[in-house]
Structures are given as C-alpha cells and as structure tokens.
C-alpha cells in the first residue's frame, strides 16, 4: 500500500467537522435516551435478578454481602409444600375465571357493535375503554365498597330480595371470584376494542357476498368472522395470558398483602413481592420471578401452538 497519489474523488481530510460528526452520530444520540433508560431500568434489573436468583441476599446487608447458593432458591420454590405452587394455582384460577369470560363476552359484543351499532361505535368504544384507563386503585376501592359485607351495595341488593349477606372478600372460595369479577370488568372493554379493530379489517365484500348467498348473522359470525379474526384472537389471548399471570394490583389492594382469607387470592406476583420486600429474601424472590417468566413463556407457546395448528393462517 504505497499510494502517493491522493484519490481525486476523496474529500480533503479534516480533523473534525461538525457536519461529519452530526451525520455519523446524530442518530445514535437521538435514540440514546431510550437505550440509556433501557439499560438502567430494563437490562440491568433483568441481569441483576438472574444473578440474585442464585444467591442468598438480605438487602439490609448491603450490596455485595450475598452468598452463592446455586440452585437452592429454585429447589425451594419448586419443592412440594411451598407457597409458590399455591400462588401459581391461585393465579391460574383467577386468570381463568376472569380471562375466559372476557373473551366469551368481548367477541360477540364486538361483532354486534360492528354489525348493528356502527353509528354509536365511537361513543360505545369510549365507554368500554374507560375501565381500562382508570386507575386500578380507584377501581378497587369502588369495588371494595360494593363488596363490603355490612355496608356494601351488593349485599344491600341481595337483602332486598331476601338473601343473606354474602362475605364476598372473606370466604376463601369466594375471594378469587370477587377478584376475577373486577379483572373481568376492567379488561373486557380492551378486548372489545381489539376485536373491533380486527373486525374492521375484514372486507365488507365478504359479508355482502355471504348476504347474497343467504347466510344468517349467526352463520356469518361462525364462518366468516371467527376464522378471519384468528390473528387478532391470538394477539388478544396472548395479552390476556401474560397480563393475568402477572396479576398484582387488583388482588393486592382488595385483599391486602396476604391475599385475603386463607390466602386464596395470593397471586404469584404478590408472593414474589412479599418475599422480596416483607421477608427480605431477594434470592428466593428472584428465582420465583424467573420461574413465573418460564410459566408465562410455556403458556404463550401452548397458545401459539394451538393457534398455528389447523388453519395455519395466523
């Protein structure tokens, strides 16, 4: 490489130029706030919790004063009588109680709105979306007043019909149902909106063709709407699974730290929080957080498998 003759096309070498600097680095500088925040609040906690999952650490001992324990935290969580299993069972149960009705109601509701109530769609969507954007604490306090045993509206309504007071938030088997109702109420609107947007992407022509062929509304729903909505259903189901498995606010505020009477509304996320900040066992807590992630991952994959099987269109 002994070229003495400078290339005629290359610009003269400059030590530093603002234009060059800007061209090269401006994109990185403009996107850097995201990456910096992601590093601090996203990647670092992830890595740190993975690290802690293999250590025994009481945060009051200060950074650095941890002890490596290998897989002990995971063994502890997966062992037979551990509360992690109970909390996982509670989470899945509340998730099913609130998630399944959500979709069973949202899908037909979206269909009806799309077919018959087009004119009022904007207003209806807004109303349905309100619970989703309302603060969970406010919602839960209002529901707490509805559920209140001696002073609540629900029991007042029951007493009018001559039925005895129900202890909505005190009977262990009832607590998950009471919590699930709130979760259902909060997210059913969100799912309706998802399905509505899915429905609007389906071409009118298909429906018109079906009408010409003499299909009824019920037939249209089952033979046109449902198959063409598969991608949106997959998306909505996935969001429900992920959201319900991480359920925290509603049961935490309604039933308190312990998950209510008999701890039947103690979800995994609540248990993880309690172990970390009440019992100060960060390692065990982190291990459970990763196990919860694994559970969500597996459920999402099952969901994915069920949807990609058969039709194969999603």
């Amino acid at each position: 490489m002994q070229e003495c003759v400078p290339l005629p096309t290359s610009p003269p070498r400059r030590r530093w130029s603002y234009d060059r600097f800007q061209q090269r680095f401006a994109p990185y500088i403009f996107t850097s706030p995201f990456f910096i925040l992601f590093l601090i609040f996203g990647l670092f906690p992830l890595g740190f919790s993975l690290f802690l999952a293999f250590h025994l650490w009481n945060p009051l001992d200060g950074l650095g004063n941890w002890r490596y324990v290998g897989w002990e935290n995971f063994q502890l969580a997966l062992g037979a009588p551990d509360q992690f299993w109970v909390s996982l069972k509670n989470t899945v149960w509340i998730g099913l109680l609130s998630g399944v009705p959500q979709h069973l109601v949202a899908l037909p509701l979206a269909f009806v709105i799309n077919q018959a109530l087009r004119r009022y769609q904007g207003a209806i969507s807004t109303i349905l979306f309100l619970p989703y954007i309302t603060n969970a604490v406010a919602i839960t306090i209002v529901f707490g007043m509805l559920y209140s045993e001696n002073l609540g509206l629900l029991n007042y309504a029951l007493s009018v019909v001559g039925l005895g007071p129900v202890r909505w938030l005190a009977v262990p088997d009832l607590v998950p149902v009471s919590v699930a109702v709130v979760v259902f109420w909060r997210y059913v609107g969100w799912n309706v909106i998802l399905y509505l947007s899915g429905l609007q992407a389906i071409s009118e022509d298909v429906y018109e063709a079906a009408t010409v062929d003499g299909a009824s509304n019920v037939q249209k729903f089952f033979y046109i709407t449902l198959p063409l909505l598969r991608p949106m259903m997959f998306y909505a189901f996935t969001l429900t699974i992920v959201g319900n498995m991480q359920l925290f606010e509603e049961p935490f505020i309604m039933t308190g730290q312990g998950g209510g009477s008999g701890g039947t509304a103690l979800t995994s996320a609540m248990h993880i929080y309690n172990v970390a900040f009440r019992d100060l066992d960060m390692g065990y807590s982190s291990a459970m957080a990763w196990l919860l992630f694994l559970a969500i991952f597996v459920l999402s994959m099952i969901n994915n498998y069920l949807f990609s099987r058969g039709g194969g269109r999603s």
């Binding site: 009977v171 262990p172 312990g258 009477s261 701890g263 019992d279 100060l280």
Partner: peptide, 21 residues
C-alpha cells in the same frame, strides 16, 4: 427473629383454613 414475618403470614393463613374450611 428475622423470619417472624414469614411465620406470621403462614400461621395466619393456616388459621383461616381452620376457621373457614
């Protein structure tokens, strides 16, 4: 004891099981 809060929660949950179920 540093595990008092752990024990307290577990025992109270079991007590509810006795009382309610």
């Amino acid at each position: 004891n540093k595990y008092d809060s752990v024990a307290d929660q577990i025992v109270n949950t079991e007590l509810t099981n006795v009382l309610e179920q």
